[in-house]
């Protein structure tokens, strides 16, 4: 279980690298979010930025799961059993967002 000194240092370095990436991505996200109501009133821009925000969040999630939670170093089969079920949530997300749009239209239509 106990690692050699070199590996120990390597792992420590990986963690600090992930920390810096997480911090930088968060800073960039917040920086751009601050510009929302100053510059980007059009919904097209907002949409593009929302996509960027979601991407950036997924990057952060990757580093937390892979490095902090150590999933990158586990056997691949285990990572697959944990990650595959998340696919069900994607369909739940798509279905419910489409529903949300539909409920909005119903409220607009019927008042």
């Amino acid at each position: 279980m106990i690692l050699s000194d070199q590996e120990y240092q390597m792992h420590k370095a990986a963690v600090w690298r992930a920390t810096i990436i997480l911090s930088v991505v968060t800073t960039v996200e917040v920086g751009i979010a601050l510009l929302y109501d100053t510059f980007f009133h059009e919904s097209g821009f907002r949409m593009a930025l929302a996509v960027f925000m979601i991407m950036a969040t997924l990057v952060k999630a990757y580093y937390i799961v892979a490095v902090f939670m150590h999933l990158k170093y586990e056997r691949k089969a285990m990572a697959i059993t944990i990650l595959m079920p998340i696919m069900f949530l994607i369909w739940l997300l798509i279905a419910l967002l489409m529903e949300g749009v539909s409920w909005h239209q119903m409220i607009e239509f019927y008042g």
Partner: peptide
């Protein structure tokens, strides 16, 4: 996990979904 809303076809859900 992909079929749950077939219980709610007449609930007023989005018919396309």
């Amino acid at each position: 996990f992909l079929v749950w809303a077939h219980h709610m076809f007449v609930s007023g859900m989005n018919p396309f979904v």
